[in-house]
Amino acid sequence: KMKACVTPLPDVQNPSEVAGGAIKPFPSRLNAVPPKISNGLIPGVSSEAYQKDNKMWKKHVKAYSNVNKYLLTGRYRNIMDMNAGFGGFAAAIESPKSWVMNVVPTIAKIATLGAVYERGLIGIYHDWCEAFSTYPRTYDLIHASGLFTLYSNKCSMEDILLEMDRILRPEGAVIMRDDVDVLTKVNKLARGMRWNTKLVDHEDGPLVREKVLYAVKQYWVGGNQTAAS
């Protein structure tokens, strides 16, 4: 039996109500609690949890900018968040000079794309074991939080890193946060791809297992030597 491919809007009780909940004008809606969350339409997510997540990402982005001085300057125009959650990273960037493609992995425990849209952000569902369509652009900055742990039993780190390298422009930057053991392996692979990398402690100190790996894809070309067959 075929199922409807369009999700119906929630029922309303009277003509004055807005189906799904009223949305504030932009940019106020960027940090307001999305109606899908305030109305309990995303299971297991409360308004308090959303606000806590929002606050956390503002803290993370501030720490990022202390290491990557270009992050909030507008240098990175095309940005991707590979594991966007509620779009907190994109909201914390909040710059008219940049836009963020918020990707919600299809294997994520919670389907959050609706909340991303209600914040006035753009996004898409995607499985990172598959190639991502980059037409018509590549990206200046890629952010990946918890992505390698999420896909640890799905596909290899090498495949994900190669896909990141493919969609990242030369001299583009990458920010990855994950468990220290995971990032240690990622760091080794990234160096093999000729990325410049820097592994940094969590902003709350070295005792936190979660670390941040900063990387820059180098602009390089092959040498003049030709290989003999």
Rank of each mutant, 00 (worst) to 15 (best):
Lys62Gln: 13
Glu94Leu: 04
Met101Pro: 00
Gly146Pro: 10
Pro15Cys: 15
Val100Asp: 02
Ser38Val: 04
Ala111His: 03
Cys5Ser: 09
Ser98Phe: 08
Leu150Asp: 10
Leu150Ala: 14
Leu161Trp: 07
Asp181Thr: 05
Glu94Thr: 01
Lys55Trp: 03
Leu207Gln: 11
Thr138Phe: 12
Arg209Ser: 10
Ile93Cys: 03
Val116His: 02
Val45Cys: 13
Ala92Ile: 10
Val200Ala: 14
Ala228Asn: 08
Ala4Asn: 12
Leu147Ala: 04
Phe89Met: 10
Lys1Pro: 10
Tyr135Trp: 05
Lys211Phe: 12
Ser133Asp: 11
Ser133Gly: 06
Val180Gln: 09
Val208Tyr: 13
Gly223Gln: 09
Ala227Phe: 04
Ser46His: 03
Ala190Gly: 05
Ala144Val: 02
Arg166His: 07
Lys24Phe: 11
Ser46Glu: 00
Ser28Thr: 09
Lys24Ile: 02
Val216Leu: 12
Val61Leu: 05
Val116Glu: 03
Val174Asn: 03
Met80Thr: 09
Lys59Thr: 00
Arg209Asp: 13
Asn78Met: 06
Asn14Ala: 06
Leu71Phe: 07
Val100His: 04
Asn196Met: 01
Ile42Gln: 12
Gln13Trp: 06
Asn68Trp: 05
Arg209Ala: 10
Thr73Asp: 01
Ala111Glu: 02
Lys3Thr: 11
Asp181Ala: 07
Arg209Gly: 06
Gly192Met: 13
Lys109Pro: 01
Ala228Pro: 01
Gly74His: 12
Ser145Glu: 11
Ser38Gln: 08
Ile175Glu: 01
Pro35Ser: 13
Met176Ala: 13
Val216Cys: 14
Ala227Thr: 02
Val61Ser: 01
Lys62Asn: 13
Trp128Lys: 06
Ile93Gln: 04
Tyr70Gln: 07
Glu203Met: 13
Thr149Val: 14
Asn83Phe: 05
Val33Met: 02
Ile122Asn: 00
Tyr70Thr: 02
Lys97Leu: 11
Asn39Glu: 15
Asn187Trp: 09
Ser229Val: 06
Ile107Pro: 00
Lys109Val: 10
Tyr76Asp: 01
Leu189Cys: 06
Asp181Ser: 09
Ala91Ile: 05
Arg29Asp: 00
Lys198Thr: 13
Met101His: 03
Ala115Trp: 07
Trp128Phe: 13
Glu210Thr: 11
Val67Ala: 04
Lys69Tyr: 09
Lys58Arg: 14
Leu71Val: 02
Glu158Ala: 08
Leu207Lys: 15
Ile42Thr: 11
Met157Tyr: 14
Ser95Asp: 12
Met101Ile: 02
Glu210Ala: 08
Ser28Leu: 14
Leu213Asp: 03
Ala131Glu: 03
Met82Lys: 14
His143Ile: 06
Arg137Lys: 04
Gly74Trp: 08
Ile37Glu: 08
Trp128Gly: 01
Leu183His: 05
Thr73Ser: 10
Pro27Ser: 05
Ala228Gly: 05
Ala108Phe: 12
Gly222His: 02
Gly192Trp: 12
Gly114Pro: 01
Asp81Thr: 05
Phe89Gly: 01
Lys59Gly: 00
Asp11Ile: 15
Val182Leu: 07
Lys154Gly: 00
Leu141Met: 03
Met164Ala: 06
Gly44Arg: 14
Arg194Met: 07
Thr226Trp: 02
Thr138Leu: 15
Met164Arg: 03
Asp11Arg: 15
Pro15Tyr: 15
Ser152His: 14
Asn78Val: 07
Phe148Asn: 02
